[in-house]
Simulated assay, not measured.
Amino acid sequence: MPRYLISFEKGSMDHIPEEDFPEVGKASHAVCQEAKDAGVFRFGGGLSYDDGDVEHAVVGTDGLVTDGPYLEGTELIGGFMTVDVPTREEALAWAAKIAAACRCPQDVRKFLHDPDLIE
């Protein structure tokens, strides 16, 4: 079955007042639980950028570590969910639910099929 990445960019939730974040968290967890109950949730979560660690690091083919985005203007992912659903339409329906819960648009991308990597 195809797998899809549903994600949003870092900063996409900056418009939400801080006092609303508990409600947003509860709503997004409810969608994830619904996806788990439906048997389509694979993995997901928000990415931390505010805990004092470097925002982003790139490891080159030579093993050299560079702090910061690889290319200027690179968009960082703020959060994501992966789902295993039979159709693009179903992936878009899950994205609509998580968009409403997180109060921000979601990007939907299909993973390339690789029988050596997908169970």
Rank of each mutant, 00 (worst) to 15 (best):
H113Q: 12
A91E: 11
F80G: 03
E34Q: 14
I98W: 14
G79E: 05
M1I: 00
G45L: 02
F8H: 15
R109M: 09
G78I: 05
E90D: 09
A35Y: 04
E23L: 12
G39K: 04
R109V: 10
S48A: 11
A100P: 07
A96V: 05
A93C: 06
D51E: 12
C102W: 08
T74P: 07
P115Q: 03
K36A: 09
R42P: 00
Q33G: 07
R3E: 12
A99E: 12
D37T: 09
P105I: 12
L64P: 07
W94M: 00
P69G: 03
P105C: 10
H113N: 12
E19F: 00
D116Y: 09
Y49S: 06
G60I: 04
D84W: 00
M81N: 10
E119I: 13
D107G: 04
H113K: 11
V24S: 06
G52C: 05
V85T: 10
F8A: 09
M81L: 11
G60N: 13
K10H: 11
L112Q: 08
E18K: 13
C32Q: 10
R42C: 05
I118H: 14
D53W: 00
M13T: 15
E119Y: 04
D14V: 06
G44C: 05
P105D: 13
K10W: 01
G25M: 10
V83L: 15
G52L: 10
E9V: 05
A96R: 12
S28K: 00
P2K: 04
S48Q: 14
H29C: 05
I118P: 04
A38D: 14
A35K: 02
V83D: 15
C104E: 07
M13C: 04
V85W: 08
T74V: 12
E75I: 14
E55Y: 11
K26W: 03
V65L: 15
K97V: 03
E23I: 11
I6T: 02
L112A: 07
P86F: 00
T87M: 06
E19G: 10
D20S: 13
A99S: 14
F21C: 06
Q106S: 07
P86W: 05
I98T: 14
F41H: 13
V59Q: 02
